[in-house]
Nucleic acid binder design. Sequence first.
RNA 1: GGCCCGUUCGUCUAGGGGUUAGGACGCCUCCCUUUCACGGAGGAAACAGGGGUUCAAUUCCCCUACGGGCUACCA
Length: 512
Amino acid sequence: MTSDKKVRVRFAPSPTGPLHMGGVRTALYNYLFAKHHGGDFILRIEDTDRERFVPGAEAYIIESLKWCGIEPNEGLGFGDGPHTPYRQSERKEKGLYRGYAEKLVADGFAYYAFDTREELEEMRKKLEAAKVASASYNSVTRQNMKNSLTLSEDEVKTRLERGDAYVIRIKIPRNEEIRVNDLIRGWVLVNSAQMDDKVLYKSDGMPTYHLANVVDDYNMKITHVIRGEEWLPSAPLHVLLYRYLGWEEAMPQFAHLPLLLRPDGNGKLSKRDGDRLGFPVFPIDWKPEGGEGASGYREAGYFPEAFINMLALLGWHPSGNQEIFTMAELIEQFSLERVSKSGAKFDPEKAKWFNQHYLRHKPAQEILSLWKPELEQKGLSLPDASLLKICGLLTEKASFIGEFTELGSYFFKAPEGYDEGVIKKRWNENAKEFAALILEKYRSAKSFDAATAENLFKESCSEAGIKPGEVMQLFRVVLTGLPGGPALFEVAEILGNDVCVERIELFLSKNA
RNA sequence: GGCCCGUUCGUCUAGGGGUUAGGACGCCUCCCUUUCACGGAGGAAACAGGGGUUCAAUUCCCCUACGGGCUACCA
């Protein structure tokens, strides 16, 4: 066990595009685990694949984590730290991987392979034609390939000196039981006969994920590797690497997280799902330089707390029935033991519900500050005191602040049309009498608040000889144009009696 | 195909050898309410199938089915 050591975990994405919500969840669980144990959370960029590198992806990852409040205390974009650099391409430049690959060769755990892509392709075709179960470069097939195990020492030397292209492959033993202890799944056993001689060092001079990952985790003193389930099949390879490098004592513990599945059908959630499903799969908007972008939760109007809360519960569950969690509560309660084993499709409806919940529990002042930029942009203004009251009323009707402007349009301007159904049903002789009465009462009101507005309304009703219920909705339509909305007299108070009078007059002018 | 992982309401999940199998979202009904929403009270809704083990299995074991992942000089 490594329990006596300070917990250190890392999130190690590849900058091959925007980080999708599954990646954010992996980062979140790493963060929660680290904080729960008073440990460190590190961000490392695994950019060993030059071909898939996407400009802007790295900045996107950093900004996403910041928006979510998942702040690494060490790593790229977060002040670096004692193990700088945190970008694998830069670590490679410093020669941090090469030596380990050479050492593995020297120790007999790896070898040089000179096969061309065509030769590899040919081998696979042959094996497939022969109906071999796994057409791979392994303990059997390597005997027929061009590598330092089959070539003479002289030829290998000549080829290396001549500068022939080569890779370094791990020499997987022929038949050995490899055991991986996964904190979520328990022991996983794999026979090495099923494994292939994975490339550790590429011909372009870059280490592959497997080598770089193990070397960095060791050097950065990582104690727990928490990553997606797609890595479970290569965990035995990593175990072997720790062993061959002589680091078995320091090997981190593994925890493979269940995958986030596509809500609509089959397969794991992928970056390509973009906006296709009708909701975002990314934390924030992705706007590549030319290419096609995709929308994010931030721009869709989600609060980071809601997004995080929703994500935390997608694959992890506390022992009780609590569903609403602050980050601090998540940190306090999180444990890998309570992470589920099976993949999760997520439900956009529930995400919305979380947002609605957080919206309702936010102070009006904070909501207003979030709404204001849109109001200013659209040239809509009212005194803050009124806006604050409007926020209070609209909060109960909306799931997102983005709905406010439309939902409360009548606070800013007189209705341009009236709900026809209500008028047809309620605009009769009695109503006309009521309208004349309330117009006068509102016009001469000395002070005006919700209670006054309601009292005057009721007086008008009784004087016109009708029940309030008969004209209540009509009156709402007169003031707002709409058949539904927040408490009517609260609305009237915010509008003020002058505006109410104007709107009654406007209505009468159009509906004589 | 091979290897690995998984399978409780539509979805996220709790639970665990004997339970009325619990909660949440969504859906439906009722109450509150001028309306809509909120809130409150209810309701419909699940242990993939087959074999074992056991007095007893949804829970443990095996098989099958289904789902997922991996199978690159990608991560």
